[in-house]
Design a protein around this nucleic acid. Structure first.
Lengths: 151, 151
DNA sequence: ACAGATTCCGTTAATTCATCGGAATTTTGT
DNA sequence: ACAAAATTCCGATGAATTAACGGAATCTGT
């Protein structure tokens, strides 16, 4: 139960950094009620523990011309799995790959500029099995993980 | 085509910040061949353009005790959509919500500590319609968007 | 009660960032 | 074509942030 190792201050720090990872640690400390060195130490400890796995820039896909998101599910057979994974890794528009239990073996999230690009991707993936494609009409903003830790 | 507005340097900067959003801009500049002020200016411009939408900490869900990821699909009817969205927003373990075309109306990504928690969530969501739940056995590392911009 | 470990703070030196003036280049308008 | 305007860069510098101390306070286990 690694969660019990996180106190209120750790969670507050993680929430602040999830909201804006470039917030100065002195400012984070101000908000959570710690000095800058104490905050830096805690952040370093969270990194060392592997809880804080890194920091990444959020890019606006639409602003980048990737205005279309789709979910592709693939139902395939054992011998196709490895080649399929390899193929997914080489497709730049496939941004997430999940191996699933149940009917479908894979669920992919793709970002494309045009329907034509989506068609190309679907056609390529269909060589491995039966695909089901759904367009994403709207996505709710992704929820920060912090909330899930308190329940 | 907003993509044409991005030159090689912008893409290199975005890639560096996506890999580690806390890299000092002087270091980013060193890598892409710009001075620190020039790099800062470009980053500011990318932020103003909305392309760089923010910076976020990556948390390790497993290290936080959220070792189980599941995909939940929901097939429901029009009158349930608004209440369902409201319910999703209030469930801390639901970290992504997508409205889809096709058979299923919603696709959710959830992170839970135990199967029991997943059961609770599924039961709650099932009040809105027919749910299909798949456990995520493995996820490939999420791909940085940079690659998708060059094709 | 005591030793060791942990976590905090304040201080300070090193690093990083924001801002400036000015040069080089590109774009715009005529 | 040509000059004016705009853009983008650099170097320099002061302001802000971070890293690295030493030492105090608190907690742990014997």
């Amino acid at each position: 139960m690694p969660i019990s190792e996180l106190d209120r201050l750790d969670i507050a720090i993680l929430e602040a950094l999830q909201e804006n990872a470039r917030t100065p640690l002195s400012e984070v400390g101000r908000r959570v009620g710690l000095s800058q060195p104490a905050t830096s130490e805690r952040v370093k400890r969270l990194e060392d523990r592997g809880i804080l796995a890194g920091y990444t820039a959020r890019l606006d896909a639409a602003a980048l011309g990737l205005g279309m998101m789709a979910i592709i599910r693939l139902k395939t057979t054992h011998e196709h799995i490895k080649p399929a994974l390899k193929a997914f890794a080489e497709m730049p528009h496939v941004i997430e790959v999940h191996r699933l239990t149940g009917e479908d073996c894979f669920l992919l999230k793709v970002l494309v500029p045009t329907p034509g690009q989506l068609e190309t991707i679907v056609d390529t993936i269909a060589r491995f099995g039966a695909v089901t494609t759904s367009l994403v009409l709207r996505s709710e903003p992704v929820k920060p993980l912090g909330k899930a830790l308190l329940g």
